[in-house]
């Protein structure tokens, strides 16, 4: 189901779940059509900040038409969003991007990886995939936001940069400490993590789907601001520059040069 509108929605609830990390439920019909791995644009009300902030969809409550976003305050725009409370209006452009091909993961040994603020979209992905799942979550420290919510959906492994919880290091260190042989990896996180996953998947000859991030203006494929180099000539650009907002943000790791 395709849904794409700019609309004024209502905040259902918002809480700070870790220092600077906010968990917000937004009432919008877009929730019914949302796919795991898609994102929305959230517009600041302060008109001096024009552009929508791309924020991944953490989860969608289709029954109650609520989209859940979990984001980190990074600047003035997200700083404004963090002040919103229940019943406040919020201006959104939804839904955007392609999402993860969760159907393809069915029946496979799937490794789901999230790093930092790349963790939230992997919750919706973990819920959507049936079968044998191993979930690796990478944090800076002991503020393991959302980790509890992953527990019912697979075997959860935690890595922390400071070693305060789980494996010291990153999600790839945590994977290496197990005997798991994934058939497929689905991931979102910082670029060094995604590069390591791409390299690992290529060495193992398995498929990895990774969700990319880039500065965006329009979010709908018109401005060509958020492109990524591709290995094959794509249908739209013809110059090996695919649009992260439209053909992505999720790509087969083999297809992108990162």
């Amino acid at each position: 189901m395709f849904y794409r509108k700019k609309e004024t929605a209502k905040v259902y609830s918002q809480t700070e779940i870790a220092p600077g990390i906010f968990d917000c439920l937004i009432e919008t019909p877009a929730a019914k059509a949302a796919r795991p791995g898609q994102f929305i644009g959230v517009y600041p009300k302060d008109a001096s900040h024009l552009l929508a902030r791309p924020i991944s969809i953490c989860d969608a409550d289709k029954e109650n038409s609520r989209l859940r976003i979990v984001y980190r305050v990074a600047g003035a725009g997200t700083g404004e969003f963090a002040t919103y409370t229940a019943e406040d209006s919020v201006s959104i452009l939804a839904n955007l991007g392609n999402g993860f091909p969760v159907e393809e993961a069915e029946g496979k040994t799937v490794v789901i990886m999230g790093g930092g603020i790349g963790i939230p979209p992997m919750l919706g992905v973990s819920k959507a995939i049936k079968g044998d799942k191993h979930i690796f979550l990478g944090y800076r420290d002991c503020n393991n936001f959302l980790a509890d919510e992953f527990l019912p959906h697979g075997n959860v492994y935690i890595a922390t940069e400071d070693g305060s919880v789980g494996c010291k290091g990153n999600v790839m260190n945590a994977l290496a400490a197990t005997t798991i042989k994934p058939d497929m990896i689905l991931a979102c996180g910082p670029m060094p993590m995604l590069r390591a996953i791409k390299k690992y998947a290529e060495e193992q000859g398995i498929t990895a789907y990774i969700s990319l991030e880039e500065r965006m203006a329009c979010g709908v494929g018109a401005c060509l601001g958020c492109v990524c180099k591709t290995t094959h000539k794509d249908e739209h650009s013809h110059v090996n520059n695919t649009r992260i907002c439209t053909e992505g943000p999720v790509f087969d790791a083999r297809e992108v040069e990162i």
């Binding site: 024009l50 552009l51 500065r215 965006m216 060509l224 958020c226 492109v227 013809h238 110059v239 520059n241």
Partner: peptide
């Protein structure tokens, strides 16, 4: 065909971009 510039290609500024 032209490939364009490397990213980041866009940045927000006060009341503009």
């Amino acid at each position: 065909p032209w490939p364009g510039n490397p990213t980041p290609r866009v940045a927000e500024t006060y009341g503009g971009m």
